Amino acid sequence: MGKTKILLAENHLVVRDGIKLLLDNEDNLEVVADVCCGREILDLIAAGVEADILITDLNMDNGGFRFIKDIHEKNTGIYVIILTMLYDEHYVAQSFRNGARGYLVKNVNAEEMLFCINHVAKGGRYLCEELTMKLVDKLIHQEDARAFRMDPTELLLTTREMEVLTLLADGLTNLEISEKLFLSKRTVEGHRQSLIDKTKSKNTPALIKFAIQNGLLQYSPLSE
Rank of each mutant, 00 (worst) to 15 (best):
R66L: 07
R192N: 05
E224G: 11
I117N: 03
D61L: 07
T84K: 06
R192V: 15
N25E: 14
S201K: 09
T159F: 08
A33M: 14
K74D: 05
K138N: 12
T153S: 13
E189K: 04
D144M: 10
L58C: 07
K185F: 03
T166Q: 14
N107D: 15
Q94I: 09
I82N: 04
Y87I: 10
D24G: 02
L167I: 01
A100S: 11
C37Q: 10
T153K: 15
T132V: 05
D151F: 05
T187N: 03
G124P: 06
G190K: 07
V108R: 09
L135D: 06
Q94T: 14
L83P: 00
R97Y: 13
T4I: 15
L167T: 03
E111P: 00
K5E: 04
D137H: 13
L157N: 06
I68T: 10
D43H: 01
F115T: 12
L172S: 10
I68L: 10
E163I: 01
I45M: 11
L131K: 09
G123A: 11
K106Q: 12
S95R: 08
D88R: 06
E111M: 04
D57C: 02
R101E: 03
E161T: 02
R39W: 00
L222Q: 13
Q94R: 15
H12T: 10
E163W: 09
T56W: 02
L54E: 08
D88E: 14
E163Q: 15
D70C: 02
L44Q: 01
E154C: 06
L13S: 09
L8N: 12
D34R: 02
A33R: 14
I81K: 07
K134Y: 09
L156K: 15
I19P: 09
G102M: 10
E89R: 08
Q218G: 01
L181E: 07
V188Y: 07
N174W: 01
I140Y: 08
L44M: 01
T84I: 01
H119D: 05
P221C: 04
R66V: 07
H72N: 13
G124N: 09
L139T: 10
A206H: 12
L58Y: 07
T199C: 15
I6P: 08
N109T: 07
L157F: 06
R101P: 00
R125S: 15
N62F: 02
I140C: 04
F148V: 11
G123V: 10
D24A: 11
S194T: 09
K3M: 15
N75A: 10
R39D: 10
S223M: 05
T76I: 02
V92L: 14
Q218H: 14
T4L: 04
A100P: 07
A33I: 06
T153A: 13
H90I: 11
I78K: 00
K106V: 04
E50P: 00
L181R: 13
Y79I: 00
Y79H: 13
R125M: 12
A9P: 10
E111N: 07
M113W: 02
E161V: 05
V188G: 04
G18C: 09
N107C: 02
V80N: 08
Y103I: 02
E161C: 05
A147S: 05
E50G: 00
L207Q: 03
L183W: 06
S95T: 05
T159W: 08
E40M: 03
E161M: 14
D151L: 12
L13E: 12
